[in-house]
Structure formats: C-alpha cells, structure tokens
Design a protein around this nucleic acid. Structure first.
Lengths: 162, 162
DNA sequence: GAAATTACGTCAATAGTACTGACATAATCT
DNA sequence: AGATTATGTCAGTACTATTGACGTAATTTC
C-alpha cells in the first residue's frame, strides 16, 4: 500500500511528522530556559553517559567542536553540566550532569516518554521490541555501536554529584 | 528494559539516531544542488500533493510564510516547481512539480525508501503495519488528518505537466 | 457598492545551529 | 626533544527559522 514508483512514501512521511511532533514537546520547555535543541541533545547524552569526554560527545552527535562550544559553555555557565579533568588522561574533560542538569534532562524526556507510551498503549512486549528493532535497523550499521540500548553500561556508573 | 525513572530512554535515543541517519542520505544529494532540508520538504509535499496551495503547504510544514518564501522562490527559479493561479479562488497559488522537480523528489526519496526496505527486510506485512501504526500514533492526534497514508487521494489527481 | 477579510508576496531585523579554517595550550606518546 | 592528541577559541559564513510590518489583488460580508 502507498508505494508508488517503488518508493515507500507512507513511512517517509510518517517519519517526518512523527519526529516533528516528538521534538515539539521539549522545544516548549527549552524556550523557557533560552535553550534550543542542541542544548537538549548535549544534556541528554551527558545525562545518559555521565563521564563521557568531549571527543566522545562530538562523535555521538556528529557535529564539530566549534558547534558544540557555545552550547556546552552555556550549559556549564548555567550549572547544568560540569567538566572534570580526566583521571587517566588529564587533557580530557569528563562531562557530568549536575542535579539541576539531571532534573532538566528528566523534564525534557518526560513528555517524549509519555508520547511513546501512548503510541504503544495497546502493544505488548513483542510490538515494543519490533519498533525498537525497526528504529535500530534505520541507523547506519557502523554507528549502531553508539547506541546504548541496554541499561548495563549505566547501572554501575553512578558518579554522584559534582 | 532500559526504562529508568520510568523514562523510555531507549526509544528516545533510537528515534534520534534513526532520524539523523534517515535524513543524511538526501542531504548529500541536496548539497550538489545548493539546496537544504527545507527545499527537500517543500519538494516532497508538492510532489505528493500536487496542486496544494501555499497556505496548505505552510500548514503541513508548520513554518511561517517568510520562512517558506526564499526556499519556494529558489525551487521555482530553478524550474523544480511551478505556481498556477487557483481555478476557484484566483488569489490562491496552486503548486505543482515540474518533470525536473519530480525527478529530484524521486532521487531524494530513493535512498530513504531503500533504508526503510532494508530495515523491514525480514518483516512481513504485519510488522510493516505495526511500524506504520506506531509512527502514526506518535503524531499529534489533531494533525493526523494531514497524513495521507493511503494512495486514494493521489490516484485521480494527475495534473500532468505544467 | 463600500468595507473587511483573505491569500500571497516582500522587506527588515534577529536567532539558533551548523560549517570551515586557523591558531593556542597543555598533556601524552614516540 | 619532537610529534601527536584533546580541548578551547577566534573569525567568517550558511541555512533555516522567527517576528513585525506593509502592499496588492481577490473574495466575502454587510
């Protein structure tokens, strides 16, 4: 169905609409802080992978360090993120969320999670797994390593407050 | 699994990565034309809903007419899109793709469709329907009318070349 | 038929996010 | 000691988006 010229227009369009609305919820909240989507992404990944270095963050986001600079500086200046000198390599800066940063990251994730829950409302674990599998398969194969689907990597890595 | 603080971080992240890579394919092609993502979106919807008016396009894209102006002008100047005076209301401008515009829209959609096909490789119609249902459910309910999943609306609307 | 509204176009100013290129500093590696 | 690496920063540019204001032509309303 809705495959014209062998092109899957239906899912192409659905993906556009779905992502547009998916990002609209946090955008509202971010506006109150004078932040944009870039701040959201940085905060999200610092929160999810506390202690990641600047280089690792750049690699995950696939942006340049000049693009990151302003956004990261603002998050540090507003006390949402802190930098600690790397323990092994003192050139590195490990990034950690503050309590304030974690709270904001959570506030931003909440409506998105709510939207996902609603979309999977009448679905069981099978359907959920299928959606996860589909989304993962949409990611470039060589980049799937970046994805941290399981919670294993997180559980032992509580660095507390900084 | 991977639901911390009751937040579905797994799908939030997967959605980010999936959409990033999903848009990266056409971005490469667009660069050759000096176009950006905005041009892609306009071209896509003009192609999908030939004859739609400027106001309808703004409503679908959820941007302002000032944002659309430059992009649409460039697409018209480069002979990818044409404007025709509305038959009923002559204030309106109906937008149609040219053959050139259709060719570009198709070239942009091809790698995206290929990616979707690969992601659904070992899936049947059931799984495909499930993914469609999920994506549709992610869209704001009041905006689902915009989505043109079926091909019914398209089939009889071939306006030919302009 | 005059007045209000609508559809569209355009000018000006601003913001957010991204880019390339270049250069500096400190730390680590060879 | 010299090369490389990790990070920071300065300068310039591009793309997409915004708000606000104004103009024109066509349609609707009274």
């Amino acid at each position: 169905m809705s495959v014209e010229d062998g092109i899957d227009f239906a899912i192409i369009e659905l993906f556009f609409f779905a992502y547009r609305d998916f990002t609209s919820d946090p955008d509202q909240i971010l506006a109150d802080y004078g932040f944009g989507r870039a701040h959201h992404r940085v905060l999200h990944f610092v929160n999810r992978r506390p202690g990641l270095t600047v280089a690792e963050l750049l690699d995950v986001l696939k942006i340049t360090k000049q693009s990151l600079a302003r956004v990261l500086k603002q998050l540090i200046d507003t006390d949402h993120v802190v930098q600690l000198q790397g323990p092994r390599d003192r050139r590195q800066r490990e990034l950690y969320p503050t309590a304030k940063g974690r709270a904001l990251a959570l506030a931003l994730a909440r409506p998105q999670s709510r939207r996902i829950r609603a979309a999977l409302e009448d679905s069981g674990a099978t359907e959920r797994a299928l959606v996860e599998r589909f989304l993962e398969a949409m990611v470039n194969p060589e980049l799937r390593a970046q994805i941290d689907v399981g919670s294993a990597k997180m559980s032992g890595k509580s660095h507390g407050e900084h």
